[in-house]
Design a protein around this nucleic acid. Structure first.
Lengths: 195, 195
DNA sequence: TTCTAACACGAATAATCATTCATTTTTTTA
DNA sequence: TAAAAAAATGAATGATTATTCGTGTTAGAA
């Protein structure tokens, strides 16, 4: 019961992803998730204690996937400045390919610290740290200015990408293509911080 | 009835700002707003049709204020690159000085297009456009690279600032001071886009 | 001062949903 | 195959709260 590799557990997560994305966490009905998953309402409570838990589990699952993928891709590149460019492209691609997930992370992640007082999204912090580490590495290799503060740099860069995806997630039509946006944003940042 | 300059109307907005900031829109009880405003529950419905309307009105009010203020401050500077720096500082100062408002804009603004299907936050778009216009001006004056796309640039810069404020709003202790963050972020951006 | 209409009140309403649990179905064990 | 355990069901519960509305209050007009 409640195994993560359980078939129904996965089904619920998948259904919740769809349903939360449609109208947000609060408007999502547990019964709708159940229906989408093709199971009874009560069954959800065999796998999750509360509605909140579904959202938390969903974050953990998706973020783990994203994080692993990004780590792997980044490690294929040795030049820190190139890593930054690749990060941007991959991040935006990810959004493109997982619209439902992106929508939830965009909208609900923001609230997480509000409606789940104690839940700290460690995975998200680790994601940010990927950027921080690249900046640190770049400084050590003399490619990035010494006065750049990684803790600020990582947030600025992530924020830039994130605002772009927010725009995409919330608007119907895609105005700029992924590659253009990734290239622009990483060029601002790379030119801005390099020695 | 329902005048915007009405005493009670303002009281409700002020109270709602506090209450929404505490636990988010959905967890906020109308009765709590009433209590905070020192009026009866029903009185709120003399001034607002629905709970949603309070949030919308709140956005409009605050954004108008912010927008006017920012416009004025920006116009005092003539150099576009300096304008960008000033924008950053002012934006972060604003967050600092209006924590409740910042918290709502950070968290609830994100949801607006979800729970209020038809509400489009024009004021926010105008705020973004302030940055877009500065970039455009900079290009025309030959200070900013011709290949910079204002529509991407404005979002990247805003996003960078916004992620920084999110960090502040959601965490207890302020790790970096306003001026440092503003200087860092605007320097990344200015160096990144200048000719 | 008396009347009236706008304003305000707050208890009662009514609808919404997360969650429970008695029952049934399926799977595992012996 | 029979008994026991686990999983699943979904109707019923119970708690929550936005909103209403019958009644009271106030401030200005006449």
């Amino acid at each position: 019961m409640g195994q993560k590799n359980n078939n129904k557990y996965r089904k619920i997560i998948a259904a919740a992803t769809k349903v939360f994305a449609k109208n947000g966490f609060y408007k999502a009905k547990v019964s709708e998730i159940a229906k989408e998953a093709g199971i009874a309402d009560g069954t959800i409570y065999i796998y999750f204690k509360h509605k909140d838990d579904i959202l938390i589990a969903l974050f953990e699952e998706k973020m783990k996937e994203v994080l692993d993928n990004m780590k792997k891709q980044i490690s294929l590149e040795s030049d820190p400045l190139k890593k930054i460019e690749r990060f941007a492209l991959l991040h935006l691609k990810l959004i493109e390919d997982n619209k439902d997930m992106a929508e939830i992370i965009q909208v609900e992640l923001r609230q997480s610290s509000k409606f789940m007082k104690d839940y700290h999204n460690i995975k998200f912090a680790q994601y940010l740290d990927l950027i921080g580490d690249i900046i640190q590495e770049g400084k050590e290799k003399g490619l990035i200015r010494k006065d750049i503060i990684p803790g600020i740099g990582k947030r600025a860069f992530f924020g830039a990408l994130d605002e772009m995806s927010r725009f995409w997630v919330l608007s119907k039509r895609r105005k700029y293509n992924i590659e253009t946006a990734a290239r622009q944003i990483s060029s601002y940042f790379i030119n801005g911080i390099k020695r």
